[in-house]
Write a protein that binds this DNA or RNA. Sequence first.
DNA 1: ACATCGATCTACT
DNA 2: GTAGATCGATGTA
Length: 210
Amino acid sequence: MNKSHAISCPDISGLKPLPRDFYLQDTIEAAKALVGKLLVHCSPEGIISGRIVETEAYLRDDPACHASRGMTQRNRVMFGPPGHAYVYFTYGMHFCMNAVTQPEGIAEAVLIRALQPLEGMELMRRNRKGARDRDLCSGPGKLTQALGIIRGHNGVDLTDSCLIIADDGEKQGELVQATRIGIKEAADKPWRFYSRRYAEWVSRVDREYR
DNA sequence: ACATCGATCTACT
DNA sequence: GTAGATCGATGTA
């Protein structure tokens, strides 16, 4: 499955990845808690990282969730153990990355929608030629391109691989709750979260809930 | 085997 | 605001 170069890379920037238990909490809570954390890719070219500023939750019985109609070739990683990356290809040209939550057999995940670029900005600019710095990672397809996340990362362990999520202790700031973007089914579910503090980096600012 | 369209992005009007 | 790119997952036959 992860046959490609999918890389092993110990000790990413000396950061300690979030423990697997983190991904066992309620998926909506995990989506909130992931805002403010770091996504770090130890790419073949060097370390590229950003702060997660926007997420969306996808639940097992949610018609907008890829896994809601059962396991397929594409979504099988979502049915696996928590703390792994579910990366899928869409619109013929983009990859999107999720963090799988819930125990094996229960398919839920958190889509990472935007980052504040941190380390490796030169690599990001090279990967996203023509984009303004503000738009290097301001969308799910943009951030995977900026970080070099591809099909081969589908299924990698976010607690121990070239791709990790870690906590550097920074405060996430006030959370804004809004509806998810680009879906038709369950479009009313307010399961998108972003940080007001980092709002300049999100994919878009919408009508707020609560 | 075929048709549809997507958890998107960019460029252009 | 709207269209085009581009391909593979999925549903129907």
